[in-house]
Write a protein that binds this DNA or RNA. Sequence first.
DNA 1: CATGAATGAGGGTTCATTCAT
DNA 2: CATGAATGAACCCTCATTCAT
Lengths: 221, 221, 221, 221
Amino acid sequence: MVNVNHRTRVAQERREKTRARLLKSALLVFSKHGADAKVIDQIISLAGVARGTFYNYFRNNEELFAAVAAESADEIIRIVQPFVDQFKDPGARVACGVRMVIDLARLRPVLAEFVVRGGPSILSKSAVVADAVMRDIRDGIATRRFNVANERLAFDLIVGPVIMGFNATLAKRVSENYPQELARSVLQSLGVSRTMAGRFAYQECGEIVLSQDSLLDTQGG
Amino acid sequence: MVNVNHRTRVAQERREKTRARLLKSALLVFSKHGADAKVIDQIISLAGVARGTFYNYFRNNEELFAAVAAESADEIIRIVQPFVDQFKDPGARVACGVRMVIDLARLRPVLAEFVVRGGPSILSKSAVVADAVMRDIRDGIATRRFNVANERLAFDLIVGPVIMGFNATLAKRVSENYPQELARSVLQSLGVSRTMAGRFAYQECGEIVLSQDSLLDTQGG
Amino acid sequence: MVNVNHRTRVAQERREKTRARLLKSALLVFSKHGADAKVIDQIISLAGVARGTFYNYFRNNEELFAAVAAESADEIIRIVQPFVDQFKDPGARVACGVRMVIDLARLRPVLAEFVVRGGPSILSKSAVVADAVMRDIRDGIATRRFNVANERLAFDLIVGPVIMGFNATLAKRVSENYPQELARSVLQSLGVSRTMAGRFAYQECGEIVLSQDSLLDTQGG
Amino acid sequence: MVNVNHRTRVAQERREKTRARLLKSALLVFSKHGADAKVIDQIISLAGVARGTFYNYFRNNEELFAAVAAESADEIIRIVQPFVDQFKDPGARVACGVRMVIDLARLRPVLAEFVVRGGPSILSKSAVVADAVMRDIRDGIATRRFNVANERLAFDLIVGPVIMGFNATLAKRVSENYPQELARSVLQSLGVSRTMAGRFAYQECGEIVLSQDSLLDTQGG
DNA sequence: CATGAATGAGGGTTCATTCAT
DNA sequence: CATGAATGAACCCTCATTCAT
């Protein structure tokens, strides 16, 4: 009995590991070749598994892409949320989120490229991202911290500049304080005064330290 | 001799027409399937020409895409610029440009989809678009109408929300005054006061009337 | 572990077999349509494999042609060399080689056609063929058995008539003793006396028996 | 009436000229790309005529190739025959023919390349070439100047080395006296004694001077 | 007779997916 | 569950030929 459980557990761990290797490779390849790249060959050779093995994990390309997108969105939230949660004020929260996410783009260019290639749809579709952002927006509007016509517009005013910020970060044409200035301007677009926006954008909010064992970690082997 | 000239002219006109048909069809198909879709079949059947005819005009997919992108950028500028040029103040100009371009997305959804799929790169790469936007940005900063860290950031603050606005427009989830509110918020992000931003965003600036004979017109036959 | 080795070995054997089937079919088709015929369709249907399978073995037409040419040259040498090696005297060796190769053309018309279509280049380019012939030429000149201006000329004097001989053999317009007479005349052109040339050309030198399992065997299934 | 005749004559001259331009271009292209090259594009642009014009002169590729081959064979005979006709003895005639034709290959490499690519078939099929060669062979055998098994063999012994000689000439790997030595060896292969063969091969027989207005002249414009 | 845009059959190549081992 | 050879649909591209002007 113990033996069987052991065998089962070991097998499951191996499964997880192979799946993780596939996801990691897929992220890398998608980030370079776009959503519907024809790339299973590249992915499996990167992951070091055989052709057929792939299909033991994902029924097809589309399912794989969805998995990578979901995993990426989760990853972003998992990393950024703790910093954001230091703050109560929705302005402070949005500013911190914007800064952190731009910083993450610098630290994980592959992730950023994936998002840029996937376009707005990846971030918009991810329930977990949309939820996190929308909560702060609603709170900001309800408490009159934000002065903006409606929630959807606010979402576009945040996500649009952030994606362009990813682009700029990847192209390495950003100054030292680009994240802060971007955050400040975003708050201004939401109706926060320039002074308050500057205060939120520049206040200390911590530094990302990348864990080495993320499912999508593409620095480590 | 007259005969030869006539023959030549007729041939040239035929060429122009076929090329236009191909570009029109390509825009439609690219807008649905993205930049590197393998779609020559669809394009030629839409354009109603033979396979070989395609290759009399474009060497391959990539060349076609570039042509469509260039034509699209030209088209956008050609339509929007006259409205923008009514104004001197860079704030007024940016507001008018943003509104018009969002409105154009509503009138030519195919064009908008093409831009959204192509991502920032289409608009950023188009020299003609980048030039037009950057000129107003520089003017705004120089005359202190805008208060923003630098030109590149300003570009991202304009283009990011506009692309999200395209997305929203295509999804039909925009209120009546979405263009104006988007324009207002964009100006605020550039450091224009909420009051001034509102004035620029809501002032009369004309209405787009689509010509029927655009190279990329996809309403007409 | 045994299992894995077994799987690997079985796969490899399958690969060899498929490759051989493709080469065999390709020889047949090239022999009928020349070097740069566009014939992958015919080859795969002859070999009874799918379109994609071809590209698992050869990147393109050209690579295939090179493989067939190399294999053909090897085949010729493999069959003829043992007979030639019975003799020491370069005259006897050249005579035997010429006769055997003409005889081979009769027994494997497909091979002969392939060579004729490919022209001198196939035989000249094949290092293995050129080496074998040149060695005897050098030996003949060094030992004064041959009296001929230089090595290159001697090569042309042997290969030229042999290719014409292939042609004649394929057209079935050769008498019983055509191989012997051709060999004799070739020796004479190299400066061997008519008497000696006749002796070499007509001495017993064996008979080709085709193995059924050659890579390029086109008689067997 | 005179007028009509004049118009007719002028038209006919123009036809001839266009046809000649097409043949010249075709020779050039065939010599570089082989018999069934897909090259009408290249030919017409070289000849400077329009696509459709081609089909006013040749029904298809094959007909064109046949015309070029015939014209080439004629050209060779037209140039070489006068030199050969200086001599009566079939040995002298063959020697002179071989030398002249190799020399021609040097002076008109395009022509030589065309023959090499076309392989034996071009020379063998050309009635005019075959006739000229065969007449001398028959005469040589009948008068016992040649000692060779049969006429067909003799043909192969002459044409084979000549084609290899073309090859060698094109590759520029021939010594000064290659033509003479080749001729000598060919005569030896036909049973002429080495002494006599040498005498025939080295006797003065004139020098080719290229006319500038040959139908196939590819030096002039 | 010259022109050159249009044609489309005919060939090449890729790549997601299947399946026997 | 891993493997990798085989598959074939879906593309891509070329080029000889036609035909309206």
